[in-house]
C-alpha cells in the first residue's frame, strides 16, 4: 500500500527578536511532534535565529511596544539598559511559567526531523558564511528553492 502523504508546513521566519521567534518555533515543534514535514526558511532578521549563538542571545526591546505588560513611554524605552531589562524580564517569565526556551524549541524541532534553510540573499546582505550558521541548518537556498518546497505544502506562513 502506498505510504500516506504526510502533512507539510513551511514557515518564512523574517524576525529576529525573542518575542517573534516564538510563533514559528512553537508551530514547528508542534507540527514536527505530530509527524508533519516541517521547513523553516530563515530570511532577513530571521537569520539571527540560526547564527551561531544567536538563539541564546535573542533580545526584546520595549521601544514601540505599548502592548508590553509594563508599557513605558518610548522616550524612556530608548535609554541604554532598557532592552537588556525587558529581555531579562521576558526570560524570567518564560522560565517561571515553564514555557520552553527558543534554543530548546530549536533543538526539539530538529530532533523530530524539522528542516532549516537559510536565505541566500540575506546571507549575502549580512555578509555571513556557512560557518557562521549553526550546524542544524541544512542548506542555503534562494526564493525559488523555497517556493519549490512550499508548492505542495498544506500550510505556508510568513512570520
Amino acid at each position: 500500500m502506498a505510504e500516506e502523504k504526510k502533512n507539510k508546513m513551511c514557515i518564512i521566519c523574517s524576525k529576529g527578536t525573542l518575542d517573534m521567534a516564538y510563533p514559528p518555533f512553537m508551530l514547528a515543534t508542534a507540527a514536527a511532534g505530530m509527524g508533519w514535514e516541517v521547513h523553516l526558511f530563515f530570511t532577513l532578521w530571521g537569520i539571527n535565529l540560526i547564527k551561531k549563538g544567536g538563539a541564546e542571545a535573542l533580545k526584546i526591546t520595549p521601544v514601540g511596544k505599548p502592548e508590553m505588560p509594563m508599557p513605558m513611554p518610548n522616550i524612556l524605552a530608548i535609554i541604554p539598559g532598557m532592552t537588556p531589562m525587558a529581555t531579562s524580564m521576558m526570560k524570567g517569565q518564560i522560565k517561571k511559567s515553564g514555557i520552553a526556551t527558543i534554543p530548546e524549541l530549536l533543538k526539539l524541532t530538529k530532533e523530530m526531523g524539522g528542516h532549516f534553510h537559510a536565505c541566500e540573499p540575506s546571507m549575502a546582505m549580512f555578509k555571513l558564511k556557512r560557518e557562521d550558521l549553526i550546524a542544524e541548518v541544512e542548506d542555503i537556498i534562494g526564493v525559488a528553492g523555497f517556493l519549490e518546497l512550499a508548492a505542495d505544502a498544506n500550510i505556508t506562513l510568513f512570520v
Partner: peptide
C-alpha cells in the same frame, strides 16, 4: 505537569 504547548505533544511523540 507544568509543561505548556507544544511540549506535551512532543513528549507524546517521544
Amino acid at each position: 505537569r507544568g509543561m505548556h504547548c507544544p511540549l506535551p505533544v512532543v513528549q507524546m511523540k517521544i
